[in-house]
Design a protein around this nucleic acid. Sequence first.
DNA 1: CGGAGGGTTGATTCCCCTCAAAATCAGTGG
DNA 2: CCACTGATTTTGAGGGGAATCAACCCTCCG
Lengths: 241, 241
Amino acid sequence: MENTPLARKLGAFVALSGTELAVLETLHKRRRTFVAGRDLFHQGQSGQAAYVLASGWAVSYKILQDGQRQIVDFQIPGDFLGLRSVLLHMSDHSIEPITDIEVTEVLATDLLDVFARTPRLATAVLWAASRDEAMVVEHLVNIGRRNAAERTAHFLLELGARLSLVGMGSKAGFACPLTQYLLGDALGLSSVHVNRVLRKLREKEMVTFRNGFVAFDSHNRLTEFAEFDPTYLDQVGPLLM
Amino acid sequence: MENTPLARKLGAFVALSGTELAVLETLHKRRRTFVAGRDLFHQGQSGQAAYVLASGWAVSYKILQDGQRQIVDFQIPGDFLGLRSVLLHMSDHSIEPITDIEVTEVLATDLLDVFARTPRLATAVLWAASRDEAMVVEHLVNIGRRNAAERTAHFLLELGARLSLVGMGSKAGFACPLTQYLLGDALGLSSVHVNRVLRKLREKEMVTFRNGFVAFDSHNRLTEFAEFDPTYLDQVGPLLM
DNA sequence: CGGAGGGTTGATTCCCCTCAAAATCAGTGG
DNA sequence: CCACTGATTTTGAGGGGAATCAACCCTCCG
C-alpha cells in the first residue's frame, strides 16, 4: 500500500484496480515544495494545476475589499489544494502554506483526460469533492449558529478527527502549527476573543492549546459541549467496488 | 432547446452530444411533486435518490440539537436537491420545499451507471457540484465577516443574480416567497434583526422587500454597499467542448 | 540587541439577541 | 359578512457577547 498521496486519497472512495492505479501514476508528474507564507495561487487567478498535499499544512481563504479575511478550511496531508479552481477554470479563493509543504502537482488537462478514459476515477474525485463540501457546510453551521466557545471546541474536534484519519492525531491531541490569528479568521472571531475562549476551555479542563500542541483534556466532555458529531467526516471503506 | 431540467443544467457546463442527451433522458424516470413544508428527506437518512428542481423553491438546512437551524442554501429551478446525499450514501442535511414544487427524480444507481458509460456527464456533474460548493464558500464568508446589513444585501443580490440566470429575475427585482424567519436562519441572524435591517436598507433606498417581492431600488448602490462580486456564480458557456 | 510575531489581559463600546407586545394579513368556518 | 385563528411583520426596551483599542509580555532570530 505504499502509494502516492492521490492514490491513497481516492482509494478511500473507490476500490482501485491495477490499471487505474497505473493511470493515476501518470497524473502527477512533479513533486514540488513551497515555503510557508507565500501563496500557491491567489483568488481571481485562473487555475492551471491542482495539488495534493503530501506533508505540511496549508490554508484556503478569501479576502474582502477592506482587508478582512475569512478562512474556508485548513488542508492537511492527503487533501486537495485548488481542485475547485481547476474545475471552474478560475480561483475564487487563495491558498497559502502555513508550514513548508510538499505537494504533487496535477495538471488540469491531464485530469480531464483521465476522467474521459477512466470514469471510475471521475466518480472518486466527485466523492472527494462532496466530502470537502460537507466540511464547508459544517463550518457554515458552526459560524452561523454556535457561540464562540462551542465554535472553537467544535473546530478543534473536527481538526483532531481529520488528523486522526491520516495518523497525525488521536483522542489525546495533535501537533498544531496554527496561530490564534489563524483560528480567529477561520472562526469569524477576533484573535483577542479566541485567546479568551481558549483560556475558558483550558480552565474547564476540556482542551489545552499551547506551544503548538492541542491536548484534549477530556475528549468526551468537549464533544458533548460542542455537540460534535463526526458523521460528516466518516468514510468507512470504498463505496464503489 | 426544449429539454429536461437536468439537460439544461448540465448543458451549461458541457456541450452535450445527441447520445449524451439520450442517456440523460433515461435518467429521470419520474416526475414528482411535493407540497410545501413537508421534508423531502431528513439529515441522518441514507439518500437513495436526488432530484432536479423543475419549479418552486426549496431550502436545505441543518438542525442543531437545541433546535436552532442553519440554512445552507435555497434551491431554485434548475438546482440539484440532495446530490451530495446520494453520492455519500448519507444525508448530512435536510431539504424542505418552501412552496409546492415539481422535481424530476434521479436514482443513485442510475447516476453511477451513467458515469461509467458516459464520462463526460460525470465531469459535468462534478462541475455542477463545484459551483454549488463555491456558493457555500461565499455564504461562509458572508456570515463570518460581514455585518448584518452587508450580509443581507449580499444575500439578496446573490439570489437576484441566480434567479436572473434562469429567467426569474432582473436587476429590477424578483418574486420571493421567503419569510423573514427563513432569511434569519440563512444569515445567522434573528428574524427580529432581519426586520430592522430590511427597514434600514429600505430607508436608504437600496432595496425593498415587501409582499413577496424584492425590488432593487438601486442595484448599483446596493452592489457597492455589499461588495458583491458575482464572479463565483458566472458560468459563461460550456467549459468542455 | 533590537525588532517582529505571537500571546495575554483590561477597559470600553456596540452590534445583535432576547423578551415582549401590537399590528397586519390570510385563511377558515359559522 | 364577520369572528376567530395562526402566521408573519413591526416596533420597543434591555442585556450580553464579542469587537475594538491599548498595553505589556514572551520568544525567537538575524
